[in-house]
Structure formats: C-alpha cells, structure tokens
C-alpha cells in the first residue's frame, strides 16, 4: 500500500511539473489529465470512492475535454507563450520559492499531528456523503443553486450575439488596436 502511494505521488508531481513546464499546450493538457487521474487514485486509497468518481467524471471528463476543444478550435497548439521580463520572472520565482519554504516548514513541523477523529471506513461512500450533504450541509447545497443560476445567467448575458451584430467594442484606443493587430 505504501509503495502504491509513493508511485502515485511521484506520478502526480511529475505530471504536474510537466503541465507547467511543457512548451506545447496539448502536452500540458494531457499531462493534466494524468495528474487528475493519479489524484483520483489517491482518493481511492483514502477510501473516498465517491469523490474519486466525481473527480474523474467532472475534471478529467468534462473540463479537460473542454480544454482540448478550446485549444484545437482556437488553434492554440503552437508552442509560444507571452514573454515575461526578467524582473517579473525573478519576482515570481522568489515569491513562489518563499511560499514553498513556508509550506515545507509547516509540513516538516506538522507531520506529527494525530488524526482529529477516529477512522470510519464508511466515510467516503456515496451513502454517507449523501447523508451529510442533505442533513448537516443542506444549506450550502441549496445555496450552490444560486451560484449556478448566476453563472448560467452570466453565460447567456456575455455570450449571446446581438441581433443586429453590433457586438464590437467601441472604446478601443488606437494603441490597443495596433497592439492587437500586431
């Protein structure tokens, strides 16, 4: 079991690094799929079958397919990204490194924490997740409908085409227009 965990952990880390490091967007997306699948496997190891299934269906299935579609439809699969200045890259490296040091220090100190509650073998099953969702967390569950409704309204509002086709931005300055044309 421990060996399986280390293999999966290595797979997650390597694929996550590939996502960030790859020059080609399609490689990044495929690596992200691998990363998501290995994380789903971690969920199974932790006895959270329901979460693992949802993770595979929603993230690996729906969202990543959408990513691939966008990349292919917009023809983005050329390996070029926006160039960042040296100062910006340096600042990002320093900030990210500091966060990493803080996280690493916290984990190093915190590995001894005992589990807060006793282990319950039924905790990640569909039955128990559903039970908690419809009793203790009923309000958050219902409130998320407001969230989805606003997202739907937003999509319709922002993406719907005008009947007369006057959809173009009117206040683009000359500099911006030149920059976009270039």
């Amino acid at each position: 079991m421990a060996a399986l965990f280390y293999i999966l952990a290595a797979l997650s880390v390597i694929s996550a690094l590939t996502v960030v490091g790859a020059r080609n967007p399609v490689t990044s997306v495929i690596a992200l799929v691998v990363c998501f699948l290995s994380i789903a496997a971690h969920y199974v190891l932790l006895n959270a079958q329901f979460l693992a299934m949802v993770h595979v269906i929603v993230y690996t299935g729906a969202i990543m397919v959408l990513f691939l579609f966008v990349i292919m439809l917009l023809n983005l699969n050329k390996p070029d990204g926006p160039r960042k200045s040296l100062a910006m890259r340096l600042a990002a490296a320093v900030a990210g490194g500091l966060l990493f040091i803080t996280l690493a220090a916290a984990v190093r100190q915190g590995v001894q924490i005992p589990p807060a509650a006793g282990f319950d073998p039924g905790v990640g099953l569909v039955r128990s997740v559903g039970h908690v969702l419809f009793t203790e967390f009923l309000l958050p569950f219902e409130v998320s409908s407001v969230l989805f409704l606003s997202a739907i309204v937003g999509v319709v509002m922002l993406a719907k085409k005008d009947k007369d086709g006057t959809d173009q931005a009117t206040d683009i300055t000359e500099a911006e227009r030149a920059r976009r044309a270039a």
Partner: peptide, 27 residues
C-alpha cells in the same frame, strides 16, 4: 467555514459578470 467559502463565491461570480456588463466597451 464551508459557508464562508461558498458565500464568497456567490458574492464574487455575479460580480465577474457584472464587471463585464457593458458589452460594447473594451475596458
């Protein structure tokens, strides 16, 4: 804390849309 996170999202997501409410404006 679950409600805190969800509340912040319910607060924010309509705002992202509203910020882009002027369809004819680039800014």
């Amino acid at each position: 804390l679950v409600m805190l996170f969800l509340g912040i999202e319910v607060l924010s997501i309509p705002l992202y849309i509203l910020a882009g409410g002027k369809r004819d404006s680039f800014r």
